[in-house]
Nucleic acid binder design. Structure first.
Length: 924
DNA sequence: TGTCTGGCGTAC
DNA sequence: GACGTACGCCAGACAT
């Protein structure tokens, strides 16, 4: 940050659209749309806090035509009118911007970009630093030594800052060539024609080579190839395209620089607006803030590091000291006081601090609590750094807390409580009464958000920057265990965690309650699943490390042989594991034909390409075998033994409940959901997942669950009948598509039908099907058409789903789980098509996830009630794996089949295949 | 030495 | 551009 506060220019229009498409369509209780407003207000608030600008402007497009329409009648001709639920937010947003104290500009006849350009250049000429906040890359042309571009609110929640070097890195050309770049590329959103087939890469390459559009045009005759022809054919349109892309920096403005002074928010107006549009967390924050809010912040941030305990890396943008009241509890009396508060509370937030992120090893270092906003306590219990002060005894404190923590009737809220469940379990405390988990609240509200960690949620829903773990414990090599963090810093951090968790819950829960189906999913499925998953993780699975090591050894031998063979064929040694080196050998040295390219333009060496080349050449065959074996060794046979917990002799995965946007679980460290099964070689790894003496492995998987769900969702009579009659669905599909009797279906026909069935679930096109089956596009198209003719209900379902997604902006599972699809209305056809495929797939994949989660609850309840001497140890999307006492297996199998089949009442039966064995491979 | 990205491959 | 959802390996580039 510069010493002098910068001029902050915000492209209000671009952010408004971005927020509208990126954020959930929130409304007030009365149904008025507010999501986009809220997104923009949050962003403005963060920008002001961060840059502490002395002058600022938020610029919007004015209504009516601009000079560009006069230049080019088709300008923005394809842009649909503003959606009603966005238009409704424009006026309220303007009011909020004004109440925030930010000068607002909307100048008729020009666009927001032109106003920003004019203001930016003017300020830069005065020697001021300028920050332009926008989602529109066209503004990159303004960047210079004083003007920087800031792109916040990206899909992944990160931001990008573009100075001159940044623009060059991002676009491949410097700011002054951006206009030329845009003229060549065109802009489909604005309907500016570019050169057909010329994208950012080609355009940047040309400009890098010739320096400017003028020089390129002058040398157009010298450009070779198809692109050169294209260029020569379209020379005439370039001047207009450039004029349209050029931002004007000479717009006459009524307001002068002094008129852009920023004096801070107008509190009463802002309070009224927040209240009117139900921005409750912002409202509470503003109400809690001392009035009037301090505006002038020393931009150099001199005082920031002087804070008492917290600041390891405090930035000037950290919120000013709020009314926060955090205790560090080190006396029996203080602890007794907090215990009493917890006992009196209807709900309390708690959090544990530990020695390790590995839930099986973590020991408690301290615990924190909150029962009301902004008031929290940290109880340090095992800090061990030199001269650490006296702390309460860990065992005694946990014993005192035990009745509360183990009481299912005492409601607790936490962030990712599954972890705390494990940590307490390590100290013999059985956590019960998990009433709420903010991570899951956030996930159920919007599963497409990339992160549901507390820091992200605090920023998103409270607009607050929290103390990050790295700030107190360091990171990388310098990271220390939490037990070594000084108690003062630990207290601020840990107490804040409990406080923020509580306040997040207060912000999130009303939103969930406002959506009854989501609330039910959260309350009845996700929350009860927490202890079930914790128990599965805690159980782990026994593996046979000696077997895996033997396999590693064998594979190593074979790899050596293959490597020698490959080097011989290549005529030189090279690293078979390096796609880059392999690419050089195959395509440069040996001159093999390039079959396809990677997204970065390199010749691909993936399996499909190598298979194709292997028909003619020997080396690719050797590489393929080497690849598959080194994958097995590197990912599985070498790694799994290292992950065996020495205490339990088993591997304990982590199931992630808030990662997959469709509602599935995911698994890591190790990932038990991608253990090989398709090849003979791979399946040997499953032999190392063994049943301990006296037990057996039982694997139960849903048969064709996603296709069954498709039958249910579509209601297609023919497909439902196939399942109802227990037919082999791929065979039945083949009979329909190829018009032959069931018993006459050939293997290739069944294989094709299977590919069609899977393709449908994934939204595959005829093109993809053709590639999958190695047939012509016409033939693939014909298959698809015959399929839809025979299963018209499926066709109707897909059309309906796409339409509904476009209309509502999200799709739902049978149980009401929601997945937002902001790209469904994208003007970019590729993004829109991808969103449509997700729209088709998500209800099926997500419903399957809901179903197996329900099954897990049912089976767990049965087992916890003493139903059988068995424990559930793994979940692999459509499969549950159990470790069952040998003498209990016979009774177990039919019961688990029954519970899983009954997990959902669909209009088709849910069949479950169950296998038993001494290891996972045998149980299939 | 650590961190990030690209290319690739495993599962359902 | 063309098949959805994940996790994780290795190589290589680059920052520390």
């Amino acid at each position: 940050m510069t010493a002098t506060p910068p001029l902050l220019l915000v492209d209000g229009s671009s952010y408004l659209y971005r927020a509208y498409h990126a954020l959930p369509p929130l409304t007030t209780a009365a149904g008025e749309p507010t999501g986009a407003m809220r997104g923009v207000v949050m962003m403005l608030r963060n920008l002001v806090e961060r840059f502490a600008p002395s002058h600022a402007a938020v610029v919007f497009d004015a209504s009516g035509p601009t000079f560009r329409d006069a230049l080019y009648p088709d300008y923005k001709a394809h842009r649909p009118p503003m959606p009603d639920d966005l238009r409704a937010q424009v006026e309220p947003l303007h009011a909020m911007v004004r109440a925030l104290g930010l000068p607002l500009l909307a100048v008729p006849g020009v666009e927001a970009d032109d106003v920003i350009g004019t203001l930016a250049r003017d300020a830069a000429a005065r020697g001021l630093a300028v920050v332009v906040a926008t989602g529109d890359k066209d503004l990159a042309q303004l960047v210079d030594a004083r003007i920087t571009l800031l792109d916040t609110m990206k899909r992944n929640g990160e931001e990008s800052v573009y100075d001159r070097a940044g623009v060059l890195a991002k676009f491949g050309v410097p700011p002054e060539a951006i206009v030329d770049l845009l003229a060549l590329m065109g802009d489909s959103v604005d309907n500016i024609p570019g050169l057909p087939g010329v994208g950012p890469k080609t355009a940047a390459r040309w400009l890098a080579e010739y320096g400017s559009l003028d020089a390129l045009v002058a040398n157009a005759g010298a450009i070779k190839g198809k692109a050169g022809d294209t260029l020569r054919a379209h020379l005439g349109q370039l001047p207009l395209a450039r004029a349209l892309a050029t931002i004007r920096c000479d717009v006459p403005l009524e307001v002068g620089f002094d008129g852009l002074a920023y004096h801070g928010p107008e509190r009463p107006a802002l309070l009224a607006l927040y209240r009117r549009y139900e921005f409750n967390s912002l409202l509470r924050e503003l109400e809690a803030a001392p009035a009037p809010a301090p505006v002038a912040v020393d931009a150099a941030g001199g005082e920031a590091a002087a804070g008492d305990a917290v600041a390891v890396d405090a930035t000037p943008a950290d919120p000013p000291a709020k009314v926060r009241d955090y205790d560090v509890v080190v006396t029996a009396a203080a602890f007794a006081g907090w215990l009493a508060r917890l006992e009196a509370a209807a709900l309390f937030a708690f959090d544990t601090e530990t020695t390790s992120l590995d839930y099986m090893q973590a020991e408690i270092v301290g615990v924190s609590f909150a029962v009301e906003p902004h008031r929290a306590a940290y109880v340090p219990l095992a800090h061990v750094y030199p001269a650490a002060p006296e702390q309460l005894d860990r065992a005694e404190v946990l014993a005192a807390l035990r009745p509360l923590l183990e009481d299912p009737a005492r409601a607790k809220v936490g962030q990712h409580l599954k972890y705390d469940w494990h940590v307490l379990r390590n100290h013999g405390v059985a956590l019960a009464g998990i009433a709420h988990d903010t991570m899951l609240e956030s996930y159920v509200l919007d599963s497409t958000a990339t992160r549901h960690d507390m820091d992200s949620l605090a920023a998103r829903y409270l607009g607050e920057t929290t103390i990050h773990y790295e700030q107190v414990a360091g990171k990388g090599a310098k990271q220390i265990g939490f037990e070594q963090v000084p108690i003062d810093a630990a207290g601020e951090y840990a107490a804040e965690d409990a406080d923020v968790t509580l306040r997040l819950h207060q912000a999130l829960w009303p939103r969930l309650e406002a959506e009854p189906r989501l609330a039910a999913l959260y309350r009845e499925l996700e929350i009860p699943l927490v202890p079930v998953l914790a128990r599965m993780e805690d159980a782990g699975v026994r593996i046979d490390p000696a077997l895996l090591r033997r396999q590693s050894g064998e594979i190593a031998q074979r790899l050596l042989g293959l490597e020698r063979q490959a080097h011989g064929l290549a005529g030189q040694p090279f690293n078979l594991g390096s796609p880059k080196q392999l690419q050089a050998i195959l395509f440069d040295q040996l001159g093999l034909p390039v079959k396809k390219k990677t997204p970065t333009g390199q010749p691909s060496t993936d399996e499909e390409v190598l298979e194709e080349l292997a028909a003619e050449f020997e080396l690719p065959r050797v590489i393929l075998e080497h690849r598959s074996l080194s994958k097995l060794r590197g990912t599985y046979t070498d790694k799994l033994p290292a992950l065996v917990n020495p205490r339990t002799g088993r591997v304990h995965t982590s199931y992630h409940q808030a990662v997959a946007s469709t509602g599935r679980l995911s698994s890591s460290d190790p990932n038990l959901q991608n253990i090989p099964v398709r090849t003979e070689e791979g399946r040997r790894i499953r032999q190392a997942f063994v049943a301990p003496p006296g037990t057996r492995i039982v694997a139960a998987d849903y048969s064709q669950i996603e296709l069954r769900i498709m039958a249910h969702l579509s209601g297609d009579e023919r497909l439902r009948a196939a399942f109802a009659q227990g037919e082999d669905v791929h065979r039945a599909t083949a009979a329909e598509v190829f018009g032959v009797p069931l018993e006459r279906v050939g293997t290739d026909q069944r294989r094709a039908a299977k590919a069609i069935n899977f393709g449908l679930i994934y939204g595959m096109s005829a093109f993809g099907l053709a590639r999958q089956l190695g047939i012509g596009r016409g033939a693939a198209q014909e298959y698809v058409e015959r399929y839809f003719a025979r299963y018209p209900g499926v066709k109707a379902f897909m059309d309906r789903t796409r339409g509904e997604a476009a209309e509502r902006g999200y799709v739902e599972t049978v149980f009401g789980r929601r997945l937002y699809l902001p790209d469904i209305r994208s003007k970019n056809p590729a993004r829109r098509a991808a969103a449509e495929r997700t729209a088709i797939n998500a209800p099926m994949q997500g419903t399957a996830a809901d179903v197996i989660k329900r099954a897990m609850l049912a089976v767990d309840a049965w087992l916890q009630g003493g139903g059988a001497a068995a424990r559930m140890i793994m979940q692999v999307h459509d499969e549950l794996v159990f470790e069952v006492a040998a003498d209990a297996v016979e009774a177990f199998v039919p019961r688990v089949r029954e519970l899983m089949s009954a997990a959902a009442a669909l209009s088709v039966p849910l069949d479950v295949d169950v296998g038993v064995g001494d290891n996972w491979e045998e149980a299939h």
